[in-house]
Design a protein around this nucleic acid. Structure first.
Length: 260
DNA sequence: AGTACCACCTGACGGC
DNA sequence: TGCCGTCAGGTGGTAC
């Protein structure tokens, strides 16, 4: 699930639920996703106030008043959930950040592909993980530069976190569908006008998806994401049967009639 | 340089 | 009901 729009929705959720609160304790239920020791995580966070949240691509940073920030990455199945003391801890909760009155924030992740880390410096973290610029705060001229000098399929480039950070399988399909570009098109075969539209559609898809709280059923009618995974998937525009093919190693949906 | 494949994990789903 | 293969929205490594 968690690509840029999803993680942005998580970030805003944290602002509403835990921002300004003091972390009383941290409980580690699964060490597998931890990049630091349990002791270090706990001692770094205990007694700290959550000051702000940031996002870069699919990474979420939780800044405290002193000391390192928490880094959350969600893999394919991760999310965060804030609960009151009497509410049940979600299944597959891996880390619990506990606040006053035993309220807590759960980092939940069924498949354990995510990571929880600490960093002193977000910029350094981003560089150290070789992440490109965040896709939602990218100028058109930077976007154009990123697409230069490669013959790869456009979908693979959009998903390459080293080039631009935040786009995964679902949203690369959506952006390409909205821009009517075939996922296998080599980047160097794109017209300037197509690149411009691709850029505009990318930002528009982020905006609409975030406004829909990244829930497919709340997205605009003409979004591909709404229809993903349905039995006989049809193009919301021309009603042709959608194609399913592997591009960039991932299952991709596209309309063979609308996308060229 | 670009792509294909595997591995990491867990669970849901469909076919038999 | 149960077993099995397949697939899932991420990422990193290796091998052609």
């Amino acid at each position: 699930m968690p690509e840029l729009p999803d993680v942005e929705v998580f970030r805003r959720y944290l602002n509403r639920t835990v921002k300004g609160k003091k972390i009383r304790n941290v409980r580690v239920l699964s060490r597998k996703i931890l990049e630091v020791s349990e002791q270090r995580l706990r001692s770094a966070l205990r007694g700290k106030f959550i000051r702000s949240t940031h996002r870069h691509g699919k990474y979420l940073f939780i800044e405290t008043d002193h000391g390192p920030a928490v880094v959350l990455h969600f893999g394919m199945t991760g999310f965060v959930d804030y609960e009151k003391a009497r509410e049940k801890i979600p299944k597959h909760a891996r880390i619990l950040f506990e606040f006053a009155k035993r309220n807590r924030l759960a980092y939940v992740n069924q498949r354990l592909f995510g990571h929880v880390d600490l960093t002193q410096d977000e910029k350094q973290f981003v560089e150290g993980h070789h992440l490109g610029p965040d896709a939602s705060s990218l100028s058109y001229s930077d976007f154009k530069k990123i697409l230069q000098g490669t013959h790869s399929a456009i979908k693979a480039v959009l998903m390459d976190q080293k080039r631009l950070a935040g786009i995964g399988n679902v949203y690369s399909d959506e952006i390409l569908f909205q821009a009517r570009i075939h996922p296998r098109r080599p980047v160097d075969k794109l017209q300037e006008s197509e690149i411009k539209d691709l850029y505009r559609q990318m930002l528009r898809v982020f905006d609409r998806a975030i406004r829909a709280h990244a829930e497919p059923e709340k997205m605009p009618q003409n979004f591909l994401t709404r229809h993903r995974g349905e039995k006989r998937t049809r193009c919301p525009g021309c009603h042709s049967a959608l194609s399913r093919a592997t591009v960039g190693g991932r299952t991709s949906y596209f309309c063979p009639a609308c996308q060229h």
